[in-house]
Amino acid sequence: MHITDTYAACDLCPRGCGVNRLSGGKGYCGETAELRIAAAGIHRGEEPPITGGGGSGTIFVSGCNLGCGFCQNWQISRAGMGRMVTEGEFARICMTLQEQGAENINIVTGSHAVPALALGIKAARAQGLTLPVLWNSSAYESLTALDLLRDIAEVYLPDLKTLDPALSARFFKAPDYPERAAAAIRRMMDFRELRFGPPRTIGPDEAGSPRVLRSGVLIRHLVLPGYLGATRQVLRWYADNAQGWALFSLMTQYTPPNPTEADIPGRAISEAEYETLLRWLEEFEIEDGFYQELVPGNTDWLPNFEKPNPFSSELSQPTWHWKQPVQRPS
């Protein structure tokens, strides 16, 4: 069976839509079997071992299998922005990022497009891609789909959004998210052990750039204002199940996007909540990871995929955009 045959009755994610995407059908993700992406570029806003000195070579995939009401990438996850790319064009984008000094190839939100992405990465490897591939996802994916990535991805950046089924049903439109995500993250940890290497590029810091993650898992959790109890559940799960096997990143960048939905938090994390989070990190003795500084009202986190550079110029360097053809350097 060819890898793309899994699109014929799609069960790549836990929703198991069963749609024939090969014939043009669309599942919950809103995508057919054709791979669509919205943007690619060098991103410097990730965690230190992901960014390194050269930045992370991010590729934003269109569509999504979750329904997060506060999605910062709503233009591509829900509003349809993006352009279909062939296997060869995807490979050229990867090669361009490598030539521009990226530390890795960071595939964002590709859970619904695993077969096409796997073929694209293999094509890039055949052209000389040597960078580690990062699988940057919500962790809402089937174990079968993850197995297709076993020999493709070296680093996994899964979200662990919540372990509360009521919250996952309310905010992510997936009541089974907690059990599915926990199982997926365990599988990722089985695949890859933590391994670091020197950066390809020395950053502006005189002390040099941090070691770059070449293999392993970094679990991310975005704190929701007013729902710190859900975060405490996640911290406990990490301490009990992943400490020593994966890194942890506590993210406090929640910013209500535009347009917003009524049933989502309408404010940023407060200073009092932030202090509570720091105490909990100490309580659970979580030291293998990172936490963001609290910067209330920082809208730099909100991209605009209508623009050639969706992010702040300080955060990213554009390489490819869905409204423009890819350009390889001479």
Rank of each mutant, 00 (worst) to 15 (best):
C68Q: 09
C68G: 08
C68Y: 10
F70A: 09
F70N: 06
C71P: 04
C71M: 08
C71G: 08
N73V: 11
W74V: 14
Q75P: 05
S77K: 09
S77G: 07
R78C: 12
R78V: 13
G82M: 06
G82L: 03
G82R: 02
R83T: 06
M84R: 15
T86G: 07
E87R: 12
F90V: 03
F90R: 02
R92K: 14
T96I: 11
L97H: 03
Q98C: 09
Q98W: 10
Q100D: 13
G101N: 06
G101Q: 05
A102T: 01
E103F: 03
E103P: 00
E103K: 01
N104A: 00
N104Y: 01
I105W: 07
I107E: 00
V108A: 02
T109H: 14
G110M: 06
H112Q: 07
H112S: 03
H112L: 08
A113F: 10
A113I: 10
A116N: 09
L117E: 04
L119W: 08
I121G: 02
A123T: 07
R125Y: 02
Q127M: 13
L129P: 01
T130A: 11
P132N: 03
V133Q: 04
W135Y: 08
W135T: 02
S137I: 12
S137A: 14
S138G: 13
S138P: 08
E141M: 15
S142C: 07
L143V: 12
L143K: 12
A145P: 05
A145T: 06
D147P: 12
R150L: 08
D151F: 08
Y156F: 12
